Simulated scan of single mutants.
Amino acid sequence: MTDNKALPPVVSAEEWEKARAELLTAEKEATRAQDRIAAQRRRLPMVRFGEYTFASTGGPVTLRDLFGEHQQLALYQFMHNGPDHFCPGCTHFTKQVTDLDGLARNGLAWATVSDMPLDQMAGYWKQKEWTVPFASSAGTTFSADCGAGGGFLLNLFLRDGEDVYRTYSTGQRGVDRILFVNNMLDLAPYGRQEAWEDSPEGWPQYPTYG
């Protein structure tokens, strides 16, 4: 993008330190609130989830199979927008799914499923050069049973032996908040530059995914 003419006001070092300290107080309050929410999240009950069989490039896989050797599973539901159409938000999200080894070291497996046909998923994964494990939930009621419907959703599961339980799910801004790029842009002067943001007059802003 070209340089923007809208700029934050220039102040003295002392004024900047004062403004930064005020923001830091608000940031610490938000951090403590997030810690409380995380503690509440760890105390959520769980619900037993049914058995599902998905299609993968290696053959049929069950929901239990996606855990591998781990006890926990994060499972992202990638939207199905029809033949030759791919959700830009899910694409943006999937590009940022990294360090799965780091998750695995903490006992958490990751996989992505979609109601897209397997061939469509496989072709898109190859085009994007993604290494994220994936399977097709087409022909199953999995996305509907999760409450995703035709949308996207992140689910967390826990297994006890062969029994699988859902412990948490989130969508919309709950998914948005874990993205590296989005969080870094939130720290930058111009933010994400998306039309919905509350930004100063004259700040560059464009349609989301535009």
Rank of each mutant, 00 (worst) to 15 (best):
A19D: 11
E29P: 00
A26T: 07
V164F: 01
R43Q: 15
D198P: 03
D65N: 15
N183L: 09
S169N: 04
D176A: 10
G147A: 12
V97F: 14
T57C: 06
L187F: 04
P83M: 00
A13F: 15
A6M: 10
S199L: 14
M116F: 00
V11Q: 04
A6I: 09
T131V: 13
W125P: 00
P8N: 07
V164Y: 00
G123N: 14
T140N: 03
W130G: 02
T112K: 01
A111E: 00
S169M: 06
V61W: 03
E22F: 14
D99N: 15
A38H: 01
N106Y: 04
G107Y: 05
R36V: 09
E162T: 14
G161C: 05
L154N: 11
W130E: 00
Q193N: 06
E69T: 12
L158S: 06
L187K: 14
F54G: 04
K5P: 01
N4C: 06
V113P: 05
V61N: 05
L73F: 05
A195Y: 00
Y76V: 04
R20V: 12
R43D: 11
R48I: 02
F134N: 00
N106F: 02
N81R: 10
N106R: 01
I37Q: 08
P207S: 04
Q96M: 12
L73V: 01
G123D: 15
Y124T: 06
G102S: 13
P9D: 10
T112R: 05
V132Q: 02
L24S: 11
G174V: 07
D163G: 02
Q193G: 05
S199Q: 11
S199F: 01
P133Q: 03
S56D: 09
L23M: 11
T94S: 05
E162P: 07
L24D: 11
A21T: 12
P60E: 04
V181H: 03
N182D: 13
S12M: 12
A33E: 10
E194T: 02
L103Y: 03
A38V: 07
Q193K: 13
C87I: 07
E194R: 06
G139H: 05
T208E: 08
L75W: 07
P204I: 11
E17D: 14
G59L: 12
M184S: 04
R177W: 12
T208I: 13
Q127K: 15
D145N: 08
G59R: 10
R166I: 08
K126H: 13
K28A: 13
L156P: 07
R192D: 03
R48E: 13
P83C: 02
D163E: 15
G202E: 09
L103K: 05
T167E: 00
E29V: 14
L75Q: 10
S199R: 06
Q193W: 03
K18A: 15
A111W: 00
E14F: 08
A55W: 01
D35A: 11
P60Q: 02
G58T: 14
P9R: 12
P207V: 05
L44I: 02
P189H: 08
A26S: 14
P204G: 09
Q172F: 12
L100Y: 07
G50P: 07
P83S: 04
V97D: 07
R177D: 13
R41N: 05
S136A: 09
A26M: 11
G191T: 03
G139R: 04
L179G: 10
C90M: 03
E15P: 13
V11F: 12
L63E: 00
N182K: 10
E17Q: 09
F93R: 03
P45Y: 00
W110N: 04
G50Q: 10
K18C: 04
